[in-house]
Write a protein that binds this DNA or RNA. Structure first.
Lengths: 226, 226
DNA sequence: GATAACCAAATTGTTGACAATAATGCGGGC
DNA sequence: GCCCGCATTATTGTCAACAATTTGGTTATC
């Protein structure tokens, strides 16, 4: 929000800023799958020109977040459960590899930092603070990919996550799931500290697969797919 | 080229067609890394309007193929050797997983098709037809990902490959490299037919890593990075 | 001869108006 | 009462003109 206000103050948001704004709306569930993004509305709400809004649409379309149809504009794309499965499978492979690479390549500072964040997350479990847990979790996974020396994977994973981000924030991190995730993290961390790349990879894959299983259970309760 | 002509006949190319045209230029090395994409030139060569050209730029920028700078337009982005390494590492993880999933999930028809393409590639090695080998190779890898039931990975890999595509077409598939690649494919195929997902994954990873090693050797001869 | 200020050309950013198409509401006929 | 066709409205697609900025060269000055 800060960025948007600041941008408005100086001249008007750039197409990238508009795209980010729309992303934020989707994440916070204010734009739901299937909803049409009417250009005039976006212009009113962001203060950007029509040209910039349409540039933003193109970027979002390339990211797979919206669909553009001729003469029908852009609408928010929803992910089916099968797509979520494919997506988590990809994440498992990529983050698994990063866990292995981290074990072999990461600096001592990164290793310690990883431990610190994990410790903070354990506290969140005890004190029942799911929103902070979610924030730290994102930071933890990011540090792992960066420490593995692979920015490309980091960006790919970021993109992969966007379509299901709102699910995570809404219902993912609460109750028993926190404890499970923390347990998984302990296993991954132990393998890394023991300099066992293969085991780190295996544990990370299991961790991501567990996340998918949890989403599946959620899906059976509430049907969020379009 | 057919598409472009056809499009011109009816009205003018869409932004997606312009983007594809630029992609083709980059792949065929007619546009090289660092080169500026002047809007007027693109308009002249494609027949598209300025608006569509700029929409195309946004898509390409989201794909990481071009960089857009304020008041300086779009220019072709080049990949450093380290980025190529990260990229191949990601491919190794993703395609490795697909090899395992293919082993467990693919239909009998897909398995047979995979064998057919591999056989055709072997012939290309014998008869020294590198360009057809390259085409079949792309088809082979694509079939493997699709048969694994993962379109998401297929699209991610397609995007990952684009920045180094022109390298592959220019110098990659020739001479000894063809024989190596064919040998790798045999190993992967054998594991799949033996219903050994773990070995299929391992062999596929090795195959991709071999590709990276070959690119490294190439890099030491000619410095293509910007 | 080198350097800095400046001007002109080239290029991109922005806006508004107009055309083409889809969505909507209305009225008539059955 | 319901459905089909038509007109109206809303929305997107396209383009051309204008503004802002960079770039390259030129000239004056030291």
């Amino acid at each position: 929000m800060e960025d948007a206000v600041e941008a408005l103050a100086r001249k008007g948001p750039s197409s990238a800023e508009i795209a980010d704004w729309i992303r934020a709306q989707i994440r916070s569930n204010r734009f739901v799958p299937g909803q049409r993004l009417v250009e005039v509305d976006i212009i009113r709400q962001t203060g950007g020109s029509r040209f910039k809004v349409r540039e933003a649409y193109q970027r979002l379309a390339a990211d797979g977040l919206v669909e553009i149809e001729e003469f029908r504009g852009a609408k928010v794309r929803g992910a089916s459960m099968d797509e979520v499965r494919q997506l988590y499978r990809a994440r498992a492979a990529l983050e698994g590899l990063c866990a292995a690479d981290f074990t072999e390549r990461a600096s001592q500072a990164d290793r310690e930092h990883l431990q610190e964040i994990a410790a903070a997350m354990e506290e969140c479990v005890e004190n029942e603070r799911p929103e902070e847990f979610g924030r730290l979790n994102a930071e933890w996974h990011q540090l792992l990919m960066r420490g593995a020396g692979n920015l490309v994977i980091e960006q790919v994973v970021k993109r992969l996550n966007t379509p299901v981000h709102h699910l995570l924030f809404g219902t993912f991190y609460r109750g028993e799931r926190l404890r499970e995730a923390a347990r998984d993290h302990r296993a991954i961390l132990a393998a890394i500290m023991a300099n066992d790349p293969a085991e780190a990879e295996r544990a990370m894959r299991e961790h991501v697969e567990n996340g998918l299983s949890f989403l599946r259970e959620l899906d059976e309760a509430v049907h969020f797919h379009t």
